[in-house]
Every structure is written in C-alpha cells, then in structure tokens.
C-alpha cells in the first residue's frame, strides 16, 4: 500500500473535511454521505482520514472489541475474565462495489475446514470495520442486496450470520461513509436516512484554488514521502484536536433552548422522523467540542443544519428548489436574520 495523501493538505473542500472530522469526534452521528462531481477529492478525503485517526484500545479478538464496554463486545470477550489489550488505529475499511455477501458478512473458514475439518467463522469486512469506518465509493451503484444488508447492520450495530451451518453474531458498530455522483443514479431514501450527515461536494471555481490543489497533488505524486513529512506537523495537530474533542464531548452542555430551536427547525422543514433532530443535536455538540466550546450555541446549530438535514427533507422529486436553499431559508426564519 502506498502512502496516503495527507488530510490537512486537501484544499477547497472545507465542508467535507469538517463533516468527516465530526464523525471522528462523535461516531454516533452516524456516518456521512458525500455526493458530487468526480475528481473533487471525495475518496481522497475519506482515505486520508484513516491516517489521521487516533489509536484506540482494543481486545485481541477478530472484532477488536472495546474493553471498556461489555455491551458492545463479542461473546468470547464478554465471557473472558481478562483481556489481552492492544492499541490499534481506528479501522477504515473499503467496501468494493463488487463485494460478495460472503466477503461483507463473513463466511465459513475454508482453510480450517479443509485442514482440520472444523467449522469456523472467517470474519468479513463488517468485522474488520467494527468501531471504525466502512467506506463505499459509488454507493449509489451498490447492489440492492448488499445495501439491505448494510442498512440492517448499521441500524443494529450487530452482524448476525446464519448460513452454511454457521450461527455467529458479533458487534459491528460501523460509521458508514458513502460517496457518489448523483447523476449516475440516486440513492434509496431508506439508505439516505441512515447517513448522519450529507455533504454536497463541488468543484472549486477559483483558479487560485485549482492551482493550489494541482500543485500539492503533483508534489505528492512526485515525492510522497517528502510531501507527507511536510504536513506531518499539521496532521499531528488535528489528531490531537480530535482526541481532545472526544474526551470533552460528554462535558459539552446542550441547553434546553437549543434543543427547542433544533426541534422547531425540524418541524418547520417537515423532516421525516426524529433521526434528523438527533443528528443535528449530536453534530452541533461535536462541533462545539471540536472548537473547544463549553456549550452548544445557535451558531453551532446553524452551521450544522444543512449537513444534518439536507438529505432528510421530504422531497417532491420534481421540485427544483435545492435542499440547501430550503434549509438556509428555514434557518433564517427560525433564528431570525
């Protein structure tokens, strides 16, 4: 595997980068959907995030369970009296478009079956991605049966395998990150709703930004090591900020009037279900934590409204008005100008 492009060196996609960072601060926000043109750095950003994420403590099982939370452990870890601990970096797993169900869910371990005649479980991508990210590029082209399966796991946080005589369940708390180009097909509303945040990625229109991006990219491709070293300091800074924000997340206060504001906004926009409001609250809190604030303010709420809600608006498929415009309008109405 070659070196990854440094996260901090990505230029001109601030909304996307911020949203990604917030999912790292609070995984409960529930994933991110990045829709937009090709070649705008969507996949680069997601893959760059992997190198940026802080390390976590994990048990030594195949699912790297959280040693501090029994409820989110696999059966073996729950039964074990003591755990062998290790430090791992938060996994970011790519789900390729052509992945089979076997590959995603896990299947019978052929090697053990052949050599020992034993039935044992070979963990799949979901196991690998537990406590981390599962990234699907071109998510709108994903086969429907894989989509169904992801929906189920993302909702329950658990992967249940009942096939080939195997009966296994293991934790699969994943942050689903998807990217794609809406012109090649749209996403089912059920799947849309599962993503916490959504970002519309656009091509920068300024020559200056282009020049900066092209130069950095070129420098990276010509000398990956040197370029990465150049950005190491900034990467470190951001990493420390994430760790700090994660620690302070639970101390950030969400005043009642903010909750009310959020509710008013959601009612005003007629978003379906409560998930939108919950995400908005969590995202605003994560933002506050990331910026070192003690409590969530109107400003945090305003800034997270579009990414938390734009994909949840009940859409008249033939309405021309963009979701972002509708949200901006509603924000102005609810918060006053």
């Amino acid at each position: 595997m070659s070196l990854r492009y440094p996260f901090s060196a990505i230029a001109g996609q601030d909304e996307l980068l911020q949203a990604l960072l917030l999912t790292a601060v609070d995984p409960l926000i529930g994933g991110l959907l990045a829709f937009g043109d090709r070649g705008t750095g969507k996949s680069t950003a997601v893959r760059a995030l992997a190198a940026l994420l802080p390390e976590i403590r994990a048990t030594s099982c195949a699912y790297h369970c959280d040693p501090d939370s029994t409820s989110a452990q696999c059966d073996a870890c729950r039964k074990a009296a003591t755990h062998k601990l290790r430090k791992i970096s938060i996994p970011v797993v790519d789900l390729p478009l052509g992945a089979t169900e076997d590959r995603v869910l896990g299947s019978l371990n052929l090697e053990r079956a052949l050599s020992h005649g034993e039935k044992s479980f070979e963990p799949g991508l979901l196991a690998q991605a537990n406590r981390g990210y599962l990234y699907v590029d071109e998510v709108n082209l994903l086969e429907d049966h894989i989509v169904d399966l992801l929906l189920d796991v993302a909702a329950s946080g658990e992967n249940v395998v009942e096939r080939e005589g195997l009966s296994v369940r293991h934790p699969a708390r994943i942050v689903l990150v998807g990217s794609g180009n809406p012109e090649e097909g749209e996403l089912r509303p059920q799947l849309l709703d599962r993503f916490g945040l959504s970002v519309e990625v656009r091509t920068p229109t300024e020559v200056k930004t282009w020049v900066e991006i092209v130069k950095r990219r070129d420098a990276f491709e010509r000398d990956p090591e040197g370029f990465t070293a150049l950005w190491e300091k900034q990467e470190d800074q951001t990493r420390r900020r994430i760790v700090k924000a994660r620690k302070h997340l639970n101390e950030v206060e969400v005043p009642d009037f903010i909750l009310e504001r959020a509710a008013t906004l959601c009612i005003h926009l007629k978003t379906d279900g409560l998930r939108g409001q919950l995400t908005l609250m969590r995202a605003a809190r994560a933002l506050a934590a990331f910026e070192g604030a003690k409590h969530v303010t109107d400003d945090h709420l305003k800034r997270m409204a579009a990414p938390s809600l734009r994909h949840r608006l009940r859409r008249n498929p033939l309405d021309e008005t963009g979701s972002t415009t509708r949200i901006t309008r509603a924000v102005t109405e609810v918060f006053g100008a």
């Binding site: 090709r38 070649g39 705008t40």
Partner: peptide, 11 residues
C-alpha cells in the same frame, strides 16, 4: 469539473 485532468496535464 474534475481536477484530475489538470494534475495529469502537468505531468
């Protein structure tokens, strides 16, 4: 709209 071609043009 994509930046990739610009990078490759440089190369």
């Amino acid at each position: 709209s994509s930046i990739r071609p610009a990078v490759m043009a440089l190369r």
